[in-house]
Computed example of a mutant assay.
Amino acid sequence: MQGLITEQTGCALTVTLNRPQQRNALNSATLDELERKLGEAEDNPQLRALVIRGAGGNFCAGGDLADMLEAQQAYSDGNQRAFTELSRRYGGLLQALKRSRLVIICAVEGVVMGGGVGLVCASDFTIAAPGSRFSLPETRLGLIPAQIAPFLNSRIGPGQTRRLALAGEILDAAEAQHIGLVHQLAVSAEELGRGVDGILDNIRRSAPGALATTKTLVRRSGEISDEELGALLDEAAEDFSAAVLSEEAKEGAMAFIEKRKPYWAQE
């Protein structure tokens, strides 16, 4: 099965995450392919927008556990930077989406967890179906949202970021729109595509060069520089590695496998 399905329609390339049995969790192969498709789209002068969707009724459940297991094996084999490299790899994709000349649109439904929230925060526009559920479960597993937090903070501000990243709340689509994580709600999952078409209709009316320059202007005026963001993500990747190797993460993993609460969540 293809990890990604792509379709070009007019000025937009739609990329569908196609791992429905894993709720479209992002593995290394999918990250590589998504970044490659982004690069190809940027080189195509006909394209002005990239739409990211998920197959099977869910958007994205975050990172793939299989990659964590591979990193664990690599660490055991002597690569002490295995978890740092795994974490930073994902942040590189988010940074590429953020600085792309293309208008990045996320059309989400169902589960939007961890790295899926990161994709939303790196996008320029997000439309959500009514049943969408947004969450950052990392701290409940003894981990940290290392590469996601800077993008989340830029999107919704430090107060709401603390709410999601520290309190671990699960937000429905309406609340996600209320705090600015989502821009628009579709009336139903079936109407999600039509909502995207409406956004693309507006993009088609805008000049490609003006779109790209405006996106850069907005990004530079409201955020830290690419260099500063890169340094922050490098540091966050080191923090992620330390978290993975901590006793809390070991307990979080065992609790997940044994389908019980970790010791810090006991009554």
Rank of each mutant, 00 (worst) to 15 (best):
residue 131 G to T: 08
residue 150 P to C: 10
residue 6 T to C: 12
residue 19 R to Y: 11
residue 170 I to F: 05
residue 229 L to R: 15
residue 29 A to T: 11
residue 172 D to S: 08
residue 66 A to Y: 04
residue 160 Q to G: 00
residue 39 G to Q: 14
residue 21 Q to E: 13
residue 257 I to Y: 14
residue 259 K to T: 11
residue 228 E to M: 12
residue 9 T to I: 07
residue 252 G to R: 09
residue 237 A to C: 04
residue 148 I to K: 01
residue 74 A to V: 00
residue 40 E to F: 09
residue 148 I to M: 05
residue 210 A to Y: 02
residue 54 G to Q: 03
residue 201 D to W: 02
residue 89 R to W: 06
residue 110 G to K: 08
residue 260 R to I: 03
residue 250 K to E: 13
residue 161 T to E: 12
residue 211 L to Y: 00
residue 190 E to Y: 02
residue 79 N to I: 01
residue 15 V to Y: 01
residue 242 A to G: 00
residue 38 L to K: 02
residue 199 I to V: 15
residue 195 G to M: 09
residue 178 H to A: 14
residue 185 L to T: 06
residue 148 I to C: 02
residue 64 D to L: 12
residue 29 A to Q: 15
residue 196 V to A: 07
residue 183 H to Q: 15
residue 20 P to T: 04
residue 169 E to L: 13
residue 106 C to D: 09
residue 178 H to Q: 15
residue 18 N to V: 03
residue 35 E to I: 01
residue 116 G to Y: 01
residue 213 T to V: 09
residue 262 P to I: 08
residue 249 A to D: 09
residue 102 L to T: 02
residue 98 K to Q: 14
residue 59 F to D: 10
residue 239 D to W: 00
residue 146 A to N: 08
residue 226 D to E: 15
residue 199 I to D: 01
residue 192 L to Y: 09
residue 153 N to K: 14
residue 71 A to S: 15
residue 44 N to Y: 01
residue 212 A to S: 13
residue 255 A to G: 11
residue 148 I to Y: 02
residue 100 S to E: 08
residue 143 L to W: 07
residue 142 G to P: 12
residue 112 V to M: 06
